[in-house]
């Protein structure tokens, strides 16, 4: 199955990427080739095979409910591209 340009455009919004017309064309072509290749896995009989999300057989790792020092606010905000003395700033998101 190959991807359409419209699908790629839709995915670019989901991925919050803005692609130029030329990039969309190239991306459609390249993703198409790769997707076609990975569809090789469709031929494997996976009946009854448990998906393997973790390779290490580790479970139940917890920390105790203890408060540890937070970052000083100026240090937390220092690297933000747009901030005031208290908060990160972004274009208005109300109603988004």
């Amino acid at each position: 199955m190959s991807l359409t340009r419209e699908e790629v455009e839709k995915v670019s919004l989901l991925a919050r990427l803005r692609l130029s017309e030329a990039e969309l064309d190239q991306m459609t072509r390249q993703l198409g080739t790769i997707v076609e290749y990975v569809e090789l896995i469709a031929e494997v009989d996976t009946t009854g095979v448990e998906p393997m999300a973790h390779v290490a057989d580790v479970a139940n790792v917890f920390r105790d409910d203890e408060v540890r020092p937070s970052l000083p606010r100026d240090e937390a905000l220092r690297g933000a591209p747009n901030h005031d003395d208290e908060c990160y700033r972004v274009p208005a998101v109300m109603g988004d």
């Binding site: 020092p69 937070s70 970052l71 606010r73």
Partner: peptide, 17 residues
Amino acid sequence: CGCSTQFGAEPNTQTCP
């Protein structure tokens, strides 16, 4: 993470990496 959940703190004073 170990940041406090206390309500009413000054903005962005209970955060960590």
